[in-house]
Amino acid sequence: MSRMKPASTFLARLPRTIEPYLYLTPAAAFIGLVFIYPIIWILQSSLWQNNPDGTKGFGFTNYRLIFEDPVFYQVVANNGKLLFAVPIMTLLALFLAIVLFERVRGWMIYRGIVFMPYILAVPVVGTTFVYLLGLNGILNTLLRGLGLNGLAHDWIGSADWVIPSIAAVIIYREMGFGVVLFLARLMSLDKEILEAAEIDGANWWQKHAYITLPQMSAVIEFFVIVELITMLSWVFAYVYTMTGGGPGFASTVMEFYIWKHAFAYRSPGIASALAVVLLGVTTVLIVLQLRLRSKSLEETL
């Protein structure tokens, strides 16, 4: 016991204003090392440009060069197209969560099945879908077997279909997360209000549109923002395993383009500038999410 005394005395002597910061120091140091230092390094790296004589110049040349690169705009457009998957995924997840919430027979099994893709590694999902979605893959074989030859497309080999196909695979995997999230919120709702609405004659649509969904707005906003960020900066593994960014640049997304410049093309400066642009966009979304959450918290209080 006596051995603890000096430390206690030391803490007791500290001004009350400093003490909390002392407790936070290890965590702050860890965050600084893992997050802040890499960001500073990338920002700095994005400003270094190679000169013809092998020396380095400092400035915004890398940013000018990426905005002059026509491929950059196609890559941004591809990420933009993927964002359309978010509302589809959200609506599907909401619908499934509500159906499961209404205790359909065997709902716990269905919940497990819906959530299962989310625990699978993305490369596993991606590689599996390559076999499913090939021109002579399982999906098209089934479609042709059903006489629906017109619906059999080259899902990942066609520039027109590749982004919708990747989006569908992302929806398949990420939707489970939404269902579990929404289901958890649904279970915490006050059931008496729903029962009262039923007694008053509200139909299924009215019940959920006017009672359930408004109470779930915070969790829906959270899911939407998280998935928007996913579509911008967490889809590399899907693209890498399914298409390698092709055909052409039809499925090349920002992360993949950053990876190519950083590791295959020996352009760390360009890769860093691209990463900073991506970081800027995702930061806007994160700030948006934080503001929405604080707003909904204020409303709850």
């Binding site: 491929v71 080259d154 080999g157 066609s158 520039a159 027109d160 092709g246 055909p247 052409g248 640049f249 039809a250 190519k260 295959a264 093309y265 020996r266 352009s267």
Partner: peptide, 20 residues
């Protein structure tokens, strides 16, 4: 490497996929 990856490999895909 960049011309190989972004032009050689990609242009061939453009033709094989008939996207250009």
């Amino acid at each position: 490497g960049q011309i190989d990856g972004d032009a050689d490999l990609t242009a061939g895909q453009t033709i094989f996929a008939q996207s250009g």
